[in-house]
């Protein structure tokens, strides 16, 4: 079982890293979008291994289906691209970007690795008397609890999110739609 866990993790981690790197460095934008979709789907699969069934399903539906169609439409609209292929920016910027990102990555790993080692500290909350809820999460999934949390404690951001999406729709409709002058 342990072997299976680590094998699944390794496979999906490798898929995520390879497909994301390929998406960034692919020569053709179509390949890039395709491997980005692979990356999104593997992230969704990784969520499923983390006992996050609802998030995993949403990830697969939103990113794996919705976003991929959106990106495909964007390629269709901009497909007849300029004659020269757009690949990387000027070499200096690429070099500086590599330096910056590698520094950032090493800083992150330096800070993350000692502090969050599960053996080294006891700051995390223990489950204690919530064993029943944990057990029911393991059995029926997280959707019920997430729903209860969102509609009890996080009503305010949820309502604000609805207004945000409305504003997004109105704005994009205005920006991308035909001008109203003809009316």
């Amino acid at each position: 079982m342990e072997f299976l866990n680590s094998a699944v993790f390794l496979i999906f981690a490798a898929m995520i890293i390879f497909s994301s790197v390929f998406a960034v460095f692919a020569h053709k934008i179509e390949y890039s979008v395709l491997s980005a979709v692979v990356c999104f789907l593997s992230v969704g699969a990784l969520f499923l291994t983390l006992s996050a069934d609802f998030i995993g399903a949403s990830q697969i539906m939103i990113y794996g289906v919705g976003v991929s169609i959106l990106l495909a439409f964007a390629i269709m609209f901009t497909g007849k691209d300029s004659p020269k292929s757009l690949y990387l920016t000027n070499p200096l910027r690429v070099f500086l970007g590599f330096v910056l990102v590698l520094t950032f990555l090493s800083v992150l790993i330096f800070f993350i690795s000692p502090v969050l080692d599960p053996k080294s500290d006891g700051a995390f909350s223990s489950y204690g008397s919530f064993a029943a809820q944990i057990e029911s999460i393991r059995q029926i999934g997280t959707a019920k609890f997430i729903g209860r949390r969102i509609f009890c404690d996080y009503v305010l951001p949820f309502e604000l999110l609805s207004l945000l999406l409305l504003a997004g729709i109105v704005g994009v409709g205005y920006l991308a739609g035909g001008s109203k002058k003809d009316v």
Binding site: A13, I16, I17, S20, V21, A23, V24, I29, S32, V33, L46, L71, A74, I75, T78, L86, Y87, L88, T89, R93, V94, L96, G97, F98, L100, V101, L102, F104, L105, L108, I109, I112, S113, L116
Partner: peptide
């Protein structure tokens, strides 16, 4: 956490070095 740090940095690198806006 390591996986997510690497993915985050790949994304950051992509923002910095790509020339195609979709990418």
């Amino acid at each position: 956490l390591f996986l997510s740090a690497v993915l985050f940095c790949v994304g950051l690198l992509g923002v910095i070095v790509s020339r195609h806006l979709l990418r």
